[in-house]
């Protein structure tokens, strides 16, 4: 497989059986190349989040093929998938999911501590660098729950970056933010993609946002109707 391909999905299908059986995803296939900034748009309920959970390896109940970094995800165990998420995927949620029991800095380095590639000291330095880039280095020692929504989302981005993932995925990461904060987050994504060659896959409702990304996948009723 082309080493430039970061993520490849092929013929992904998924059914929900509750309350009655229906097909949420139908023959979804696409690729994401290294450094590509891709957005997914579509009407509410068309299956965007469902697709993203499959791509992020958290949902394993689907048919079709999924490769991340050239590795087949279908044959991996729960533990191995956790390791893939840890090392290769950075996830940014719509709601700012931080661990309220920990400080901002600890939240950022936790996936790194799990990975154990860098020492805690190196991780802290790296985290501070990211936080500085995101303009929130002064918040590092604060407890996570004391932050504003926009600040939390930037912390989540720093956390997603800590292990240098192959791809950052976001499920409407700006959906819960005001216009100004949305701009800040978008600018950060754009910068990551352009300057650092970071691959990104972001689900959004915001057409303006989507128009500014390198590539947009449009979904309708569980199918991809347009890629450009």
């Amino acid at each position: 497989m082309d080493s430039n391909i970061v993520l490849k999905a092929q013929a992904i299908e998924k059914y929900f059986t509750d309350p009655e059986p229906f097909k949420v995803l139908d023959n979804v296939s696409f690729e994401i190349l290294k450094g590509e900034f891709t957005s997914i748009v579509g009407k509410s309920g068309c299956g965007k989040s469902t697709l993203l959970y499959i791509l992020s390896t958290m949902d394993t109940d689907y048919s079709g093929q999924l490769w991340i970094g050239g590795e087949d995800m279908k044959i991996k165990s729960e533990k191995e998938l956790a390791a893939v998420r840890n090392e290769h995927i950075g996830f940014v949620f719509q709601f700012h999911y931080l661990l309220n029991e920990f400080s901002v800095l600890k939240n950022v380095i936790l996936p790194g501590l799990k990975l154990q590639k860098l020492s805690p000291k190196d991780l802290e330095e790296k985290a501070m660098l990211h936080l500085k880039q995101l303009g929130i280095d002064s918040l590092a020692p604060k407890m996570a729950y004391k932050l504003s929504g926009g600040e939390k989302q930037r912390v989540a981005i720093a956390r997603a970056l800590i292990n240098d993932p192959l791809i950052i995925m976001g499920d409407e990461p700006t959906g819960n933010l005001d216009h100004k904060n949305s701009e800040i987050v978008f600018d950060i994504f754009e910068q990551l993609s352009k300057e650092y060659g970071q691959s990104l896959l972001i689900v959004t409702h915001d057409d303006e946002f989507a128009a500014r990304t390198g590539k947009t996948i449009i979904m309708e009723d569980g199918r991809i109707v347009q890629k450009n």
Partner: peptide, 16 residues
């Protein structure tokens, strides 16, 4: 529950 979900999403396995 939220904490557990975040831990799992960021790479902690069920056994962790």
């Amino acid at each position: 529950m939220d904490t557990i979900a975040i831990l799992k999403a960021t790479g902690f396995s069920g056994s962790d």
